[in-house]
């Protein structure tokens, strides 16, 4: 009882943590964009704050527009299946980077007509959070997936030479923007692309993933509006003419990775290479995406970014896990035995992956400790597994009150992430099927 406060999250109202989003309204409607001068005295950079919302929640433009003929949001099984595809995609890319054996798609090089590869792609599963930007002059609203796991921003473009999936907002039309231009093949920016081609002097980009999903089109420049007051002129992005994958009805993707084409890198001089996000706990709430330095809250924990591990991804070093206030007996080598070798595998922080993946030995220790701690609180596993989530509980008849053990992730430098109650369990069918929201990699070397 003495350590109950540090060992458990007590949830007085189960529905507060696992709401039925289909019957809820947006509690904190997205605010107009905020903008302020930086408080940093040593920099002339500014900061801008955007609203981040759950893609399928009532705060999203993608769910509040005309729904009469729209498809219902994906089930949790669909989301988890897509998430597994994304993780395979990331593992594929990491392996390809390590072995330098990544396969590159081919592009036409001299044709005067654009002939883009078009094939059915599997789901990318680009996570669940979106933000709205403006592109072009005048700016047209585009709601895009927030993705720290990739670099190149892209939106679907008219005339969709090959194919576009159905999106909620109007397609971006370059012909209607007075500031749009294609990047030429000779431009240095074209060389920054991981996958590029050339057609009639126009630079082509390709974003292709290990699972087969993709966006291909013209690499272009136009004004990117992050707020009513702040824009980036000459922002380079993909004008997608051939796109497929499970992007929902989003208009594209905002690439926030570490590569040269990412938004943080393109706007480095403006925002100092600093951005932050907060993802809301509930589909009915809003979070933020902030660019530029701001004063961090006093309780901020920091850990080194392991920049030598490879491009694009944000690697950090995980060192251990606490469950219910107790450090799990996981050897440090478990977190550093991946195939990338050298300084260790590291752990990627990815806004586009839904469920945290752990090395098998770490997950086994977490699951064992979590199940034991739940049993000590009177909960028995009584619900079926849901896709990759194998530890599920039935909270029916609990009177809406449950207490779950705390889970804390530990990182190099002493940083820790005391996972919010909403992040420890994933509600597949609340309250009858609520699962531990972690999963294992397939192998120790993944």
């Amino acid at each position: 009882a003495g350590d109950a406060a540090t060992a458990s999250h007590v949830m007085l109202r189960l529905e507060d943590i696992f709401p039925d989003s289909s019957s809820s309204s947006c509690e904190t409607p997205p605010q107009d964009h905020e903008h302020a001068a930086s408080s940093s005295s040593s920099s002339s950079s500014s900061h801008t704050r955007m609203t981040v919302v759950h893609r399928h929640g009532p705060c999203s433009h993608l769910s509040t527009a005309d729904t009469q003929h729209r498809k219902p949001p994906p089930s949790h099984e669909d989301i988890l299946a897509a998430d597994q595809n994304r993780v395979k995609s990331i593992q594929h890319r990491v392996a390809a980077t390590t072995s330098r054996a990544g396969k590159q798609p081919s592009f036409p090089t001299t044709s005067s007509s654009v002939k883009l590869p078009a094939s059915s792609g599997l789901a990318l599963g680009t996570g669940n959070y979106v933000a709205t930007v403006g592109i072009g002059t005048p700016a047209t609203r585009q709601t895009v997936v927030v993705d720290t796991g990739s670099d190149t921003t892209w939106v679907q473009c008219r005339p969709c030479v090959a194919s576009c999936y159905a999106q909620r907002e109007a397609l971006f039309d370059p012909a209607r923007s007075s500031t749009y231009s294609n990047v030429s093949c000779a431009a240095a920016a074209c060389s920054d692309l991981d996958v590029r081609g050339c057609s009639a002097g126009h630079c082509l980009y390709g974003v292709q993933y290990g699972d087969g999903s993709f966006s291909v089109g013209f690499f272009a420049m136009d004004t990117l509006s992050l707020s009513s007051y702040d824009s980036i002129k000459g922002f380079k992005f993909g004008c997608g003419e051939s796109n497929d994958g499970l992007f929902g009805e989003a208009s594209g993707l905002l690439g926030l990775g570490r590569g040269k084409t990412s938004l943080p890198m393109q706007a480095y001089a403006k925002y100092g290479g600093v951005f932050s996000h907060c993802l809301p706990a509930r589909p009915t709430s809003t979070g933020y995406l902030n660019f530029g330095p701001t004063s961090p809250p006093p309780a901020t924990q920091t850990t080194p970014m392991l920049t030598t591990n490879g491009p694009t991804f944000y690697y950090v070093g995980m060192t251990g896990i606490h469950v219910a206030g107790r450090l799990l007996p996981i050897p440090p080598s478990v977190f550093s035995s991946s195939s990338s070798g050298g300084g260790g595998g590291g752990t990627i922080v990815d806004s586009g992956t839904v469920i945290t993946r752990l090395p098998p030995a770490a997950y086994a220790a977490l699951r064992s400790a979590f199940v034991a701690a739940m049993a000590a609180r009177g909960y028995r596993r009584a619900a079926a597994a849901a896709a990759l989530l194998d530890t599920c509980y039935d909270f029916s008849g609990m009177g809406g009150v449950v207490a779950i053990p705390k889970v804390v992730l530990l990182f190099q430098g002493g940083a820790y992430l005391d996972v919010d109650a909403s992040g420890i369990m994933y509600a597949v069918r609340p309250p009858s099927q609520v699962c531990l929201g972690f999963a294992a990699n397939d192998g120790d070397g993944d």
């Binding site: 901020t300 595998g345 972690f438």
Partner: peptide, 30 residues
């Protein structure tokens, strides 16, 4: 590699500082 996904990041402010090569976590940011 392991991956910290968005379910576990909920409510945290996650700051990425490319210049300082640092990632930060701020509890209760939203």
């Amino acid at each position: 590699v392991g991956i910290v996904g968005n379910t576990q990041l909920k409510t945290f402010g996650v700051v990425y500082d490319l210049g300082k090569s640092m990632v930060g976590f701020s509890p209760g940011a939203c």
